[in-house]
Computed example of a mutant assay.
Amino acid sequence: MTVTRLSAAATILSAVAASLLLTSCSASVDVDKSTPKLSADKLATTVSEKLAATTGQPKPRIDCPENLAGQVGNTTRCKLTADDGSTLGVSVKVTSVEGDQINFDIKADDKASPAKN
């Protein structure tokens, strides 16, 4: 039974990875200085919402370790964690900044990492 559960989680993560190739997102942010920033929490929420909308699945658990500075080309890595504990890396790259709006692409890794026992 464990193999089936891991297989189902891997299938879901694979579907997320396949549907996420360079999906564009945007978020409005508060401008404190000349460079707008998107907090790690807001970034994680936005990525989770976009994944859910793209895949038709419930919002996944996303963790982003740092804020995203609104400069074209800036990147960060977030992590999607499935219910079984397996993980999938998600890259976020700023594509444009329009005033206080940071536009970015999301790209999921091709393979998930198995759950740690």
Rank of each mutant, 00 (worst) to 15 (best):
T35R: 08
G56C: 05
S96P: 13
K107Y: 01
S91R: 15
G89C: 08
S113W: 08
K33D: 06
D84C: 04
K37M: 05
A10E: 12
I62A: 14
D84H: 12
L43D: 02
L88D: 00
D30V: 14
K59L: 08
E66K: 13
A27Y: 09
V72S: 08
A69T: 08
C78A: 09
T87P: 00
N67S: 13
V47A: 12
P114L: 04
L68S: 01
G56Y: 09
T75C: 15
S14R: 14
L21C: 09
S86E: 02
L38F: 02
D100H: 12
V16H: 03
T23F: 07
V16G: 00
S86Q: 10
P114F: 00
K107I: 04
P58L: 05
T54Q: 11
T23K: 07
A53E: 13
T23G: 08
L43S: 06
A112W: 07
V31S: 07
S7G: 08
T81N: 00
L20P: 04
A8W: 01
G89N: 14
D83Y: 08
T81M: 09
D84R: 05
K59C: 04
A115K: 00
Q71M: 04
A112S: 11
I62W: 01
C64R: 00
E66F: 02
T45W: 07
R5F: 10
L68G: 11
M1P: 01
A15E: 05
V3E: 09
K111D: 00
L38H: 01
T75Q: 15
K42A: 13
K79T: 12
S91T: 10
S19C: 07
G73S: 09
R5Y: 11
Q57N: 12
R61I: 02
T45D: 02
N67K: 15
D41W: 03
S7D: 06
T76Y: 01
I62M: 13
N74F: 08
S39P: 08
D63S: 15
R77W: 04
E98L: 10
D30E: 09
M1L: 07
V29F: 11
T35M: 05
D41V: 12
A115C: 03
D41Q: 12
D32A: 11
K59N: 14
Q57C: 10
S24P: 07
K79F: 03
V47T: 07
A27H: 14
D63K: 15
T35Q: 06
K107S: 02
G89I: 10
T54P: 05
A52T: 04
T35D: 03
V47H: 03
D30W: 07
I12T: 10
S34G: 02
